[in-house]
């Protein structure tokens, strides 16, 4: 499914610290089936998270979100996380999220403007995040056009398909 970067996203925040690892997001060695993964994602950081998270909620985290292995954060998309907003993302998790695509945004000061359970609004077009509860804002990084195009075409597999069809039609 394509992702419209211009759409404003709003949701309740689940706040995490630094260096949240992909083993914790996606503990598939222990739970190979998606249904089980959904019941255990991120529990090693916050045991209540998989039980209480609701579709439309957002994840806010500190530095190096998604460090560790190359596993994708697909499970977060499956449980309905509307967006991930982090101070910095591990490069491979970022690459993975762009490819999925899973809306992920880098806002270096996000930790300062929002607390757990507050409502956050992401306005990519205006490169800004806003704490709806307090009104505080922080800047959001804009992606280069190639990355925007991947988001908008629905991720790398769709991007590949489009290019392949164009090449073979010639």
């Amino acid at each position: 499914m394509s992702f419209d970067l211009n759409r404003i996203i709003k949701g309740r925040v689940w706040k995490f610290g630094d260096s949240v690892d992909t083993d914790s997001i996606n503990p598939y060695y222990l739970y190979p089936a998606m249904e089980d993964l959904k019941r255990h994602t991120l529990e090693s950081f916050r045991p209540e998270f998989p039980k209480e998270v609701k579709p439309g909620d957002m994840i806010v985290a500190g530095r190096n979100f998604g460090c560790g292995s190359h596993r994708p954060g697909l499970v977060l998309k499956e449980i309905g996380i509307a967006a991930i907003v982090v101070e910095s993302a591990s490069r491979l998790f970022l690459r993975n999220s762009i490819a999925l695509p899973m809306p992920i945004f880098i806002a270096p000061d996000i930790g300062k403007i929002v607390n757990d359970a507050e409502i956050l609004e992401v306005d990519y077009r205006n490169t800004q995040v806003r704490n709806v509860t307090t009104g505080a804002t922080a800047a959001l990084r804009k992606y280069p056009p190639t990355i925007e195009a991947i988001f908008e075409s629905g991720g790398m597999p769709a991007f590949a398909r489009k290019r392949y069809l164009a090449e073979t039609a010639r």
Binding site: L100, M156, P157, A160
Partner: peptide, 20 residues
Amino acid sequence: TGISRSDLMYAMIFGELWFQ
């Protein structure tokens, strides 16, 4: 360097990929 599964799918077909 490591890439995602979707990136690999693209790379397998085209032998090219985006990099920063």
